[in-house]
Design a protein around this nucleic acid. Structure first.
Lengths: 103, 103
DNA sequence: ATGTCATATGAACACATATGCATATGTTCA
DNA sequence: TGAACATATGCATATGTGTTCATATGACAT
């Protein structure tokens, strides 16, 4: 074999759009902070807002984005709604990026 | 141990901004297409543009973004400048995202 | 040096997006 | 039912971003 690199076929355009949309979600520091905040424990919206010292509505807006992209789990308990990271998959994506940034 | 999830410490804000900036780069379908195009072979700017059926300047602008984020390697040969993906690291980030999108 | 080709850059525009304010929705408890 | 609390949503706005056009920069050959 001349070339050791495997040819990676380009996914369909539609999938590429979805992929770009996914990475867009990770491309905002507020959302990253939210993800870190709920990475080990679920948290209510207000708790997240206080923890990050930001407006409740800002957090709520961004949580919606995370929800729509299936990156968080949601659980209602009375008046409060608790959010947590959906899976370790999400953490891995972040860690991969972090590796690149830190090197 | 009650909680099996490891507590992941939140990186400093400055690093989070860098991290968000990195993911922003992946958050555009044109740049993703460019990355796929040069993932197994280096390619000249014009070749990339023709291959994706886009303006040369559009590609050039986006290649600059990729360059600034150290995601591509650059090699000059005469009048042409050849771009290739910087490392397999980049591919892994894309694949991670793809896994999430396709599931 | 001049013309030609390849690439990069600047400006302008259209479009997307993050945030904050005000308010609506939904839940609990009295 | 009504008050109090938690969350979500609509709107307005400021800021960011992708693309195109025109042009500059740089390299090569004659």
């Amino acid at each position: 074999m001349e070339n050791t690199k495997k040819a990676v076929e380009m996914p369909d355009l539609e999938i590429l759009f979805d992929l770009a949309d996914l990475f867009k979600v990770f491309g905002d520091s507020t959302r990253l902070r939210i993800m870190y905040t709920i990475s080990d424990n679920e948290m209510s919206v207000l708790n997240i807002a206080e923890s990050l010292n930001m407006e409740q509505s800002t957090i709520s807006h961004q949580l919606r984005v995370l929800r729509q992209n299936k990156l968080v789990r949601v659980r209602r308990d009375g008046k409060q709604i608790y959010y947590s990271l959906d899976d370790d998959h999400v953490k891995k994506i972040i860690e991969m990026g972090l590796d690149h940034v830190l090197e």
